[in-house]
Structures are given as structure tokens and as C-alpha cells.
């Protein structure tokens, strides 16, 4: 799944808050991690994951950058503050806003990745 395809998977209600960089739109998403605790994301998310969260602030971008996450989906229609968007552009991280909950967004992404033949065994 690419970042561009992720935008389609999130459905009509989702909007792009920060667009992927030209080449980044084709970056491959290998999995996902859903969490609102930043230490948890650092401990458990994998490079290449999409981060599903309600934490819409610049520290989320810093953590995504550390882990090697190229795209963040902010759920429940939370607003993305200007400083978060700016940090995301600096780091080259795409940000979507979805009106749906983390549960529904994770379900959409899981289903799409599963259809691609990816599996997510419990570690």
C-alpha cells in the first residue's frame, strides 16, 4: 500500500492535512500501529508503519520521525495545529485527518493490508 492508496482506503470523509512529498506518495506502507502513547509508539511501532492516533501535536511528528513512520492518520476529526503541520513538512511525513475512530481506521487499513497478502502475527 502506498500513501496515495492509503488516502483512498480512508474513505471520502478523510482529508489530507500534509501531503506526501512527491516521491513519498509512492512509499510503501508495510503495517500499522495504533496508539496515543508516544513512548508506546517508540517501543513498538515498526519502520514503515502508518501511525493511527488522536495525538495531534508536533511531538507526534517527532516520534514518527524517530521510528521511521512516513504517515500519520489523526482520528476523530481532530484538528492538526499549524506547528504540527510545519514539523511534518520538515520531516517529510504525510498527515491525514479521518472523521472516524482509531478502531474504524485501523480496521480499514488492516483489511487493505491483509488483502495485499500481508499478515500480522502476534509477537
Amino acid at each position: 500500500m502506498t500513501i496515495t492508496e492509503l488516502g483512498e482506503i480512508l474513505g471520502d470523509g478523510a482529508v489530507v492535512a500534509v501531503a506526501a512529498q512527491a516521491a513519498g506518495g509512492k512509499a510503501e506502507i508495510g503495517g500499522g500501529y495504533t496508539s496515543d502513547l508516544l513512548s508506546d509508539v517508540m517501543a513498538n511501532a515498526k519502520t514503515g508503519d502508518v501511525l493511527v492516533t488522536i495525538q495531534a501535536h508536533r511531538n507526534t511528528v517527532a516520534v514518527a520521525g524517530i521510528v521511521g513512520i512516513a504517515v500519520i492518520v489523526v482520528c476523530n476529526g481532530r484538528e492538526v495545529p499549524a506547528d504540527m503541520a510545519e514539523a511534518a513538512r520538515d520531516e517529510g511525513i504525510a498527515v491525514f485527518i479521518s472523521p472516524e475512530s482509531q478502531f474504524r481506521v485501523s480496521g480499514r487499513i488492516w483489511t487493505a493490508l491483509h488483502a495485499e497478502g500481508r499478515s500480522f502475527p502476534a509477537s
Partner: peptide, 15 residues
Amino acid sequence: SLGFGAGMGLPNVKR
């Protein structure tokens, strides 16, 4: 509420 204070900071560093 900002996503910190999960009590994982120092354990993460040690890990």
C-alpha cells in the same frame, strides 16, 4: 493528555 507519562520512558531507554 499529550501522550506522555505512560511510565515507559526510562524502561525504553534501558531497553
